[in-house]
Design a protein around this nucleic acid. Structure first.
Lengths: 222, 222
DNA sequence: TCTAGCAAGATTGGATCCAATCGACAATCG
DNA sequence: CGATTGTCGATTGGATCCAATCTTGCTAGA
């Protein structure tokens, strides 16, 4: 999706221009529309969003705090580029957080949650578009974590899941989309359904770690 | 330490006013000098820092992304207040991240690291000031995690350790400083020294979880 | 007396303007 | 001929100004 589309579609949803610019830029970075290393010129962005430089600057500051852009004084902001180290970092964090979220959440999951998760697995089987596939994958995992009752923990997981989409792009490009590991998703859901929080946590951890290995192998091979 | 002191001391260390304001405000919030719920008026802060409102606004945006202040459009920023839920969140995150960092770090720790950690334990025994005690505690843990080779993971751990100081203040007030659990620190160091990453990780997790229970009990009792 | 509404002050959001810094290229000096 | 320095354009950092919105308190009417 182009940036212009995002602008036209979402502007009314935000009360302030700053929040709007921040949201669009974040999605653009996470979706890969703005690849790592892209310099973000304030004037240019301001013109694109039809606002002044100020909301752009504030938005860039927020993205800096989220480690999505790098700031250098008097040189400006650049989209953080994705390295093998960053990927390893991301997966190490997720491998720690997601099993923890699962352990807290599984005891409180409802039938509706399980049904929704199952439907998402089916949708993933049918979906062809990669961006959409990443979105479905995120929603599947977040559905299973949602009942953890720890909003900050969930926000962290969500943030790092979204960031992982940037690597997922390489993942698919290198290995094909059958590496989405749908059987692991099914096993995860089954364990959660059985109330086996510990087993589910183990599967989730292994799930993240195999993904990490795949990405690592991909980076090593070039 | 007063805000005025921080201002006088640290201004030359920063290239830009924004970075300076952000740093001072963050420390002030984490140290408890600015308690939760404090409204942060831009004009007032700008006058205090002898700058205009703009760097203050940018700094506040960054703190917002770090969940240290809450923004409401046209109403301004307020220091995020610490609730039992926030504390539980913080400890859940740390209970997941710190053992992971430890597992990665222990195999690469050096004799110097162990010596430094041991010295920090001794310093904690001798230290009376609470703020300084929290700082020593942080440095002890971070020393053991430092060789994990995952900068983002470490940054997350550091951020949440620092945030925990806000709760630690209550912890000590309620339970006395002997609850610092120095014996657990010693056990943690011993396991790390023995190269037992798994054992160290277990101790660290238990360490965080008992702290979480203490805080929870404290919040429940009022 | 109580409430709805309006008006003034306070405060933030956004735009515009000026200053400081960086990068590149050219001119000068050894 | 190479290194250094100075100047200019581009870009960001910071200050000031204006607009939008929220809050507060007063007033008028039921």
């Amino acid at each position: 999706m182009d940036i212009a589309d995002l602008i036209a579609r979402d502007r009314p949803r935000f009360r302030t221009a700053t929040a709007f610019v921040e949201s669009v830029l974040r999605e653009a970075i996470l979706s890969g529309a703005l690849p790592g290393g892209t310099p973000l010129r304030q004037e240019e962005l301001a013109a694109g969003f039809a606002v002044s430089r100020m909301p752009v600057r504030e938005a860039l500051r927020q993205l800096e705090a989220q480690a999505l852009v790098d700031f250098t004084p008097h040189k400006g902001a650049v989209v953080t580029d994705i390295s093998a180290q960053d990927a390893a970092d991301n997966y190490a964090i997720r491998a720690a957080l997601e099993p923890a979220a699962l352990r807290l959440s599984v005891p409180h999951l409802t039938h509706e949650d399980f049904d929704r998760a199952e439907a998402l697995i089916a949708e993933m089987d049918a979906e062809g578009d990669l961006a959409r596939l990443g979105e479905l994958n995120r929603r599947f995992h977040l559905t299973l974590y949602a009942r953890a009752g720890r909003p900050r923990l969930l926000a962290l997981v969500e943030q790092h899941l979204a960031a992982a989409d940037r690597y997922l792009r390489f993942h698919f490009a290198a290995l094909g989309r059958d590496h989405m590991a749908q059987d692991e998703h099914a096993a995860l859901l089954a364990a959660a359904r059985a109330g086996d929080a510990e087993g589910a946590a183990r599967i989730a951890q292994a799930h993240v770690e195999t993904a990490a290995r795949n990405i690592e192998a991909f980076f090593a091979r070039r």
